[in-house]
């Protein structure tokens, strides 16, 4: 972290008594942080350790609970169900992240350029899906895709063609792609937009005097200056998509079996735990997924460390 500097402690020489007073006053910080730390230890550190512990044991009907070492992990990474799910969310991330960021960036750049009532109205409307629960977003699109009451069928019949059912086995990837892009692009747009607004506009004046047009200003000045916002969004988006659960789970009753019980790693872990009561193996799956996410984010952060972001 380079951005945060501590306040209230000047680095000049101060008399010992005053330094001691400073020291004592600074310990008050613990009291402010304490409630969060309790929550942090109880609901993050403890479950993490506990998941790690659970994942090292197996529970058999006849044998009872026995120590299994890394057997569950070997099993998980050899389990075709887990590997398929993992491969799906990785592929999905590779497509949905550039798509979301592209839409968000274009919208933010346009909104930064245009002023007036249309712009502020558009900004709110594009942001609106963020306030809609993912459950409702997935349901609405599920209805819109539906052959029995969606508009796609009606529009397609005007042209005498059959509309594709976006939740079928072959199309569900695209159906979900659209739902997730719709849900999150507006939130990312607002973050980029806020970063754009904080750029000193005298830079644009200077560029204009040098003969740069609007597109050149956008690509050469604005985009490079909001890179840290883009990196932040990328990390959020990566963490979110690898944990994919709600949208496929919600469309599954109307998707005619396209969403299998092991569709994504999270859905698989959920079904293992709550359908088959395999909590140990489910914990190993969760832990493995968490490890993959952590690794992906760490690699990505390392690769972009010169560009700023959360962990510069």
């Amino acid at each position: 972290m380079t951005v945060i500097t501590a306040k209230g402690t000047p680095e000049t020489r101060v008399p010992t008594s005053s330094r001691r007073r400073h020291f004592r006053r600074d310990q008050i910080g613990w009291l402010f942080v304490l409630p969060f730390l309790v929550v942090f230890l109880t609901f993050l550190v403890a479950p993490l350790l506990y998941a790690g512990y659970l994942s090292l044991y197996t529970k058999g009907l006849a044998t009872g609970t026995t120590f299994a070492g890394f057997d569950n992990y070997t099993r998980a990474f050899h389990d075709p169900a887990f590997r398929h799910g993992l491969w799906l969310v990785v592929r999905f991330s590779l497509v949905v992240i550039p798509l979301q960021i592209g839409v968000a960036l274009v919208a933010a750049l346009l909104l930064d350029e245009i002023t007036g009532r249309l712009a502020s109205f558009s900004r709110l409307m594009i942001f609106l899906p963020y306030a809609v629960p993912a459950v409702i977003g997935a349901l609405m699109w599920g209805f819109l895709y539906s052959p029995s009451f969606g508009p796609m069928e009606q529009i397609a019949s005007l042209f005498n063609v059959q509309a594709p059912f976006l939740l079928s086995q072959g199309n569900i990837f695209y159906g979900l792609l659209n739902i997730v892009t719709w849900q999150w692009s507006g939130y990312y747009m607002i973050i980029i937009y806020a970063a754009l607004k904080s750029i000193d506009s005298s830079l644009y004046e200077a560029a204009r005097l040098d003969g740069a047009n609007a597109r050149q200003i956008a690509l050469r000045i604005k985009v490079p200056l909001v890179t840290s916002a883009l990196v932040l969004i990328l990390i959020f988006s990566l963490i979110g998509t690898l944990q994919f659960f709600t949208e496929p789970q919600i469309v599954s009753p109307i998707a005619n079996g396209s969403v299998t019980p092991e569709f994504t790693p999270n859905i698989y872990a959920f079904n293992l735990a709550f359908r088959y009561a395999q909590f140990n193996y489910a914990s190993a799956i969760s832990f493995s997924l968490g490890f993959v996410v952590f690794l992906a984010v760490a690699i990505f952060t390392f690769a972009t460390r010169k560009r700023g972001g959360l962990f510069t």
Partner: peptide, 13 residues
């Protein structure tokens, strides 16, 4: 960076 949904199952237990 810790995916919070990975914690749901151990938290449940």
């Amino acid at each position: 960076m810790v995916p919070l949904t990975a914690l749901v199952i151990p938290t449940f237990v």
